[in-house]
């Protein structure tokens, strides 16, 4: 067993884990932060995306030990408080950007990384950036609208509706 310490959503945490423990299992099993999901085993679906030192990372593909000392943010850490949600969380609700909700945490974490890199992305840039997050429910239409709206742009302008 190896002791792995990091800061998750602003709190210092430490757990003794097997060396092969993946970051996603550390979050889900050891810290009970089950908002981060596992949707595949080939690093393709993006349901497990979290931020490690500000960068979007697929937590299924990173050992917990590699995040030793890092600052990690998960979906549970995105809202300032229970009634002050992150603008992406609000926009996904406003624009029906989720159905079953399983991909949503990873989708929001990726979209947040996009907006920090590119505050006013175009439709094409949003679609390209979210290529590593698979959603089976929405057909992406309303996800694109939600991200656009969260960036302060007019989502009505692009929707062919």
């Amino acid at each position: 067993m190896t002791k792995v310490s990091m800061t998750v959503n602003g709190k210092a945490v430490a757990r003794d884990v097997e060396a092969r423990r993946m970051l996603v299992d550390y979050l889900r099993q050891d810290l009970d932060l089950t908002g981060t999901h596992v949707g595949c085993d080939t690093s393709q679906c993006g349901a497990c995306v979290v931020h490690v030192n500000g960068k979007a990372v697929k937590a299924c593909t990173m050992l917990a030990a590699e995040a030793e000392g890092a600052k990690v943010t998960t979906i549970e850490g995105m809202a300032s408080s229970d009634d002050d949600l992150h603008r992406l969380q609000v926009a996904f609700n406003d624009h029906h950007g989720l159905q079953c909700g399983f991909c949503t945490p990873g989708m929001i974490m990726s979209a947040a990384a996009l907006l920090s890199e590119n505050p006013t992305p175009s439709e094409a840039e949003i679609r390209h950036y979210l290529e590593g997050n698979i959603c089976r429910c929405t057909g992406y239409h309303n996800i694109v609208k939600a991200v656009l709206a969260a960036s302060g742009q007019d989502s009505a302008a692009l929707a062919a509706e």
Binding site: T34, I75, L88, F92, N93, L98, C100, G101, I108
Partner: peptide
């Protein structure tokens, strides 16, 4: 949506 967008599903 609230529970799903906040990781509380």
């Amino acid at each position: 949506d609230k529970r799903f967008t906040t990781g509380k599903g």
